[in-house]
Design a protein around this nucleic acid. Structure first.
Lengths: 336, 336
DNA sequence: TAAATTCCCGTGAACGTTCACATCAGGAAA
DNA sequence: TTTCCTGATGTGAACGTTCACGGGAATTTA
């Protein structure tokens, strides 16, 4: 059926090992032989069997460079909102520059629902590692780690007792930046739009808020499911109640929903209410008014994660989990 | 190091084959033995080696039920714009309902740049098929088909001489719907925002336009790279030239950019210019004004593709390429 | 009671590689 | 000449499975 290394060897009148060495390109083969073998390989359409290769060479991971890792998205990642798309893009780009190949897998709602699918991916081949995007529990990470030895967490909390590397955006500083900016603009009655209470970004937001709490007349928190729709509804409800705020802070998706609601309510932004987002997703630049926001280099986030993974593969320092921080910066547009 | 099937067999006092059979769950093993082996497997933390498995069992693709296929995104897919995210979601959902597992791979700019990465994925295991999202050339499809026997094309042109199934949105009808709607609203000077000239959606747009051309005073076409940014620039440029239109049609991403530019130019939408999009991406509902658009059920697109693939796997009718069409419908909001 | 059937289970071989080691020619150093 | 090295290639074994058999005990059928 398919042509094996032995077929090539026979036809090229050398041993299997020589063919292997030719593929390895380490210059230990006579140039003339090299050429001949190469020609035969091409002519016969030889394709190395990754399975056999994986089995024998275990962790050496050179060979074809067919080095795959899983890019696993957490249940909290609303891929459609643009943030995680960019993270994925960054990761893919970095991976492809280094000859790695990412396999994307998306978490379903629960661990139980997702695990079988992950198992499938794991069972397909021994991956060289996994990049976890978003929030995962210690248990989840531990389970994943059993199959993909090397694990990097991006944009989510990395349990301290586990040997995982992590890349985080500097959420707390970023939130502080946002709130400070609102403060500078004279905001005193602040509405915070946040995600579910147990979400790590919600918590980052809260701790930033607490830092400034005393400067505000009032600060209210509204939990959402991170959709623009919910944010829109929240604003309508809150305004109907007669609560008036002069500043709103939430991630871009939520802020965009808020902006839309405020337009319906004929509330002038930024004159009456100032709105600031977080993430700097692509659409934030095209809203009306354009959204002031905290910009995170999402591609960098993905890129650094993959780079971290590669480091772990290259060197064998599995014991020294690195933590990288991506800085956040303020982008002033029209909504403040 | 790692525990093999033999270790389990020894400890459970059975043969390797029995362990294999236990994993296969085909009821050919005595219940008592089954339990014992299971217990030992768990206790020893046995994980089957996918490599060895892949090598030996080649194409039988039962075993764990780890049935994977590749979800390949074309170079034309701006994942970040929300359209293809939803397609992916739909595909994933359908896949997971049927015990399949999608591996996402994203095309780089060129075939040459992407091929090695695809090779990696293919080489990792024999996939049961591939879903191609977006526009691929015949050559590309043919190459892919060599590795993933079953191929379904979604939202892109399916070469007629190739045995591929396809799922398309009804682009031409959809575009006609949009243009008819503009016509109904009294538009007579139309600006079309479209993608690259050789893109299949651009072409669908054009053929719809031609159908109605005689009804308009003027119709101009502007090619873009499908980014809101470019659309924004185009509008500014066109308006600066003094060309005035009373209707604009392009996909949502482009329309959103146009909307933003018109706001800058203080052109009232829909009073002065009516804007209609295509796709109904999530953000289209939150723009100001909210974007009237042609809605495509993107999840359905992905779902049908996977369903088609499953059909091809179940039945063996590789010779009867099915073509499904997803209907488009008009969603009237505020921009017209 | 013999023969046939059914239910379980085991054995050896093979899959396509790579690893560790062996071989072997030819030239340099002693 | 002998010894030692170096560069180029070959050999047998092993990796962890699964497949195609084969076989024995228990049960049914003739």
């Amino acid at each position: 059926m398919s042509v094996s290394i032995l077929d090539v060897a026979l036809k090229a009148d050398v041993s299997r090992m020589t063919v292997t060495r030719v593929m390895r390109q380490d210059g230990s083969v006579n140039a003339q032989t090299q050429d001949r073998v190469m020609r035969v390989m091409r002519q016969m359409g030889y394709v190395p069997s990754p399975a056999a290769r994986a089995m024998r060479s275990k962790d050496k991971l050179r060979g074809t460079g067919a080095l795959c890792f899983a890019l696993i998205f957490g249940a909290d990642t609303q891929l459609a909102d643009g943030f995680f798309c960019d993270v994925a893009r960054g990761a893919e780009q970095a991976a492809s520059e280094h000859g790695l190949c990412p396999l994307q897998v998306h978490w379903q709602n629960t661990f139980e629902a997702s695990w079988p699918r992950l198992q499938s991916v794991f069972s397909i081949s021994s991956l060289c590692g996994a990049v976890l995007v978003g929030q995962f529990s210690g248990r989840e990470i531990k389970n994943i780690q059993q199959h993909a030895k090397r694990v990097v967490v991006v944009d989510g909390p990395a349990p301290e007792n586990l040997p995982v590397a992590s890349v985080e955006s500097d959420n707390i500083s970023g939130c502080k930046l946002a709130i400070q900016h609102l403060l500078d603009r004279g905001v005193r009655r602040l509405l915070i739009l946040t995600g579910p209470p147990d979400h790590y970004f919600s918590q980052a937001t809260l701790s930033a808020v607490n830092y400034f709490r005393s400067h505000f007349e009032r600060v209210d928190i509204a939990n959402t499911d991170y959709t623009a729709q919910t944010a829109e509804a929240v604003i309508h409800k809150v305004w109907a109640k007669g609560r008036k705020y002069d500043g709103i802070f939430g991630n871009d998706e939520l802020s965009l929903g808020a902006l839309r609601a405020l337009a319906d309510l004929q509330v002038k932004v930024p004159q009456k209410v100032r709105v600031i987002g977080f993430d700097d997703i692509p659409h934030a630049a095209f809203s009306h008014p354009r959204l002031t926001t905290i910009s995170i280099d999402k591609k960098q986030l993905g890129r650094e994660a993959v780079l971290g993974l590669i480091e772990m593969v290259r060197g064998s320092h599995a014991l020294e989990p690195v933590k990288k921080i991506i800085r956040a910066k303020l982008v002033i547009r029209e909504s403040t």
